[in-house]
Amino acid sequence: MARGRLRRRLAAIDQNLTTRPDADLVDILRIPEPFVSPTQRIIRRIIYALTALFAAVMIVYLDRHGYRDIESSPNPDDPLSFLDCFYYATVSLSTTGYGDITPVTPSARLTNVLVITPLRVAFLIVLIGTTVETLTTQSRQALKIQRWRSRVRNHTIVVGYGTKGRTAVAAMVGDEVAPADIVVVDEDPAALERAKSAGLVTVRGNATDSEVLRLASAQHAKAIIVATNRDDAAVLVTLTARELAPNAKIIAAVREAENQHLLEQSGADSTVVTSETAGRLLGIAVQTPSVVEMMEDLLTPDAGFAIAEREVEPKEVGGSPRHNPDIVLGVVRGGQLLRVDDPKVDALELGDRLLYIRSAESER
């Protein structure tokens, strides 16, 4: 009954985000873009302008018999020179038009091409460049959102980009997970800006709202990490995420151990009690600080030693994990983790997975 009431409550605050046009989601869903300096942008614009100019020149030159210069050519049948074509294309693309004063001599026309036109292009860049760039940026972002929503599959969603969320993302990236495969959901603009700077896709909103998680494509996610700052929020997010993604793996962090069973009942596959874990490390550090240092090393996948998981190779079937060349800590069989000294895993079977200690340096 309680879960039914909670679902009705979440449905009541549904904002129908996924039904909005992609252009309306630009301020909510952000797809990271590579940084381009202002100098590079201006150079690109100049190159585009010159390309269009030379294309117009060639078009006019190929059809030069169809043009007539009434000022400098006494014979109407004389074709335009290449400089004439260049001049005509220049005044046409720059929207100069034809006035009562027009350059007639070759030197005047050459000056118009080499000096006046670049000044006009620079003026247009300064005058309308910012407006055009803003419009094209929003349109490009809306197009990227549309493509991303249609293609994203098997990604990881991180709810909350505080200390726990940032550390979780750093661990995944260190374990060779592409940043583009990670989506951060948070309400804090500063946290979203940090996630964007790290190359992550971001969604602004409250993850207890099913539409926010649906906008992050939770229904297609491989895993969902719940790293909120409050246990009640973690329970609500887990419940919402499990309803949207019944097949996704949900890992949730909880501050207090008495709330761990609430996360498990809400659908979390794995839970981490942050306060007790930190307390144990603090207690161990009093007598054996080197143990804490080694555990931190094991939890850092991109340096030193790290805990990893792999499938049992055919040549290892039938052997004991304790005699394996790798330092094996446990065996996952049928979705259940068994310690290496458990009699059930004295002989490895095909399909087992080994939890072992690997060296990041040797693998690189």
Results as ranks from 00 to 15, higher is better:
R7K: 06
E33C: 03
I307Q: 02
V152D: 01
I59K: 08
R166I: 08
G160F: 09
E243V: 07
R140V: 11
L25F: 03
E363T: 08
S81L: 10
S197M: 08
N112W: 01
E133V: 06
T202A: 10
G97R: 04
Q146I: 02
R68E: 07
Q219I: 04
R194I: 14
P325Q: 13
I43Q: 14
A55M: 02
V184N: 08
R8M: 05
L6I: 15
L6W: 15
N247S: 10
V183F: 13
V104R: 08
A89F: 07
E256D: 04
V126Q: 07
Q40D: 09
S320W: 04
G335K: 02
A23V: 12
F54P: 02
I251W: 04
I145T: 09
L110M: 12
P38L: 00
F82V: 13
M58R: 15
D63L: 09
A195I: 10
G318L: 14
Q141T: 07
T240N: 08
I250Y: 00
H323N: 09
L239G: 00
S275N: 15
L262S: 11
A227M: 05
M172E: 10
R68G: 01
D63R: 14
S290D: 11
R41E: 14
L93M: 06
D186A: 05
V57Q: 03
P289M: 09
I125D: 10
T130N: 04
V91M: 03
G129I: 01
L282C: 06
K164R: 04
P321A: 08
A195D: 00
T156D: 12
R5Y: 03
A195Y: 01
P246W: 03
H220Y: 10
R20M: 07
V60H: 09
T288E: 14
M1L: 06
V159Q: 05
A142Y: 06
V177L: 05
T271E: 00
L114I: 04
P106H: 04
A268C: 15
V203M: 01
A216K: 02
V254E: 02
T300A: 07
I327D: 12
L10W: 10
T130E: 13
I250H: 04
Q141L: 12
T39F: 02
R7A: 13
A52S: 07
P106Q: 13
L239M: 07
V177Q: 13
A190D: 12
D346L: 07
Y61P: 00
T39M: 10
Q260N: 08
M1Y: 06
I125L: 11
E71T: 14
E211T: 14
D346M: 09
P179T: 11
L80K: 06
V235K: 07
R64F: 02
L127K: 13
D78I: 02
V158A: 06
A303R: 12
D342N: 11
T202C: 10
I284T: 12
R153E: 15
